[in-house]
Design a protein around this nucleic acid. Structure first.
Lengths: 195, 195
DNA sequence: CTACCACTTGATAGTCAATAACAGTTTTTC
DNA sequence: GAAAAACTGTTATTGACTATCAAGTGGTAG
């Protein structure tokens, strides 16, 4: 990633981007996703709707937060070589989430609930999961884990399904449960599928 | 399900619905999903665009084919009680797909490829998977399978992830592989995740 | 057979997301 | 300081989708 130069322009862009995102989330929570037009978000953030689309490719994209993927890939690669692929994924993901959870818990809950209750966002979410699946499978492959490419893809897909379920369960319970614990339980279930 | 009366009206509606769907798929394949407008589909089918939306809630919906879910749920319920939940799901799903595959293989391939290559349809597909996950989990629960509701949800999600991967692999290979065999391999991978 | 009723459809107009073209302004960069 | 590049707003257009209302069709009772 590049911070090419902290010039005035970059600072201003970062501020504009953040303003759009914050106003968008605020309005989504207040009035609902569908009832909030891009025009309204833009004017709340003090820009034109064209500028909105220059910062975010779509109305859906303003809710996303894909910053975790690269970190998780790093963590997967860093797992000791002896562990099996499921164990490696488990330790990497649960460890990574634990950190995110400690600092961004509330924001994560708000965003997750919004996504779960908005059909358009749910679809988007799953589409992202597909690229995450590919990243995970690739990271496992470079770790020289056993199994064919196909098997690693299946593994990554199964893990993502399990993680999504944990996240959904957590959000449905309004964040009362401990998310890393739920994810651990999800991984336990994966390890003993035919209980 | 109701066939209230095979009156002229019902026949006509069924014909219109089928015509819209067939023209839509034909045009999608010829010109691409995005390049095909609803207006064009409607006029090809000899109706107005309003009628299109009276038959299908959205442009995306015209590609779907959710008819398999009830059949799969029946098959899951019919599995012998002794088998573990993963085995039950495996036998039900692979058996069901084998039948579909024997009769609808070409149509399945065309539709799957279209969905995989069209971002908007991929999102829709995953959204449907969510309701399928709930149906599977519920079917397993009524079978009095071991495990909590949460664990069954995780299982259903993992299986759907694995199945999607098999379907994607099959479509990427232009249908050269045998789909039921691929699904069997996906289930094998699930059974030995930490290979 | 006819007259009535519910259902289905089309024409029209509108909203909203997303894209394109152009002009005006500001920040770099030399 | 001036030329080049980047950023933004205005306006217009496309296409998915909805609402309304008028007109046409099939089913049915008399």
């Amino acid at each position: 990633m590049s911070s090419p130069a902290p010039g005035l322009r970059e600072q201003r862009k970062a501020r504009t981007r953040k303003a759009i995102q914050e106003h968008a989330l605020r309005l989504f929570l207040a009035d609902g996703y569908d009832a909030t037009t891009v025009e309204r978000i833009a004017s709340a953030a003090g820009v034109s709707h064209m500028t909105f689309f220059r910062y975010f490719p779509s109305k859906e994209a303003v809710v996303e937060n894909d910053e975790y993927d690269p970190m998780l890939v790093e963590l997967i690669r860093a797992q000791p070589a002896g562990a099996g692929p499921l164990t490696a994924l488990r330790n990497a993901v649960v460890g990574g989430i634990r950190e995110v959870y400690a600092t961004d818990k509330d924001a994560l809950l708000v965003r997750t609930r919004l996504i779960l209750t908005t059909p358009a966002l749910r679809g988007r979410q799953w589409r992202n999961a597909e690229s995450t699946q590919a990243l995970f499978a690739e990271a496992l492959a470079t770790r020289a884990d056993g199994g064919t490419t196909f098997e690693l893809r299946v593994l990554a897909a199964a893990v993502l399904g399990a993680l999504s379920t944990a996240l959904a369960e957590w959000a449905e319970g309004d964040g009362a449960d401990d998310l890393p614990t739920l994810m651990d339980r999800a991984f336990d279930a994966l390890a003993h599928l035919d209980s």
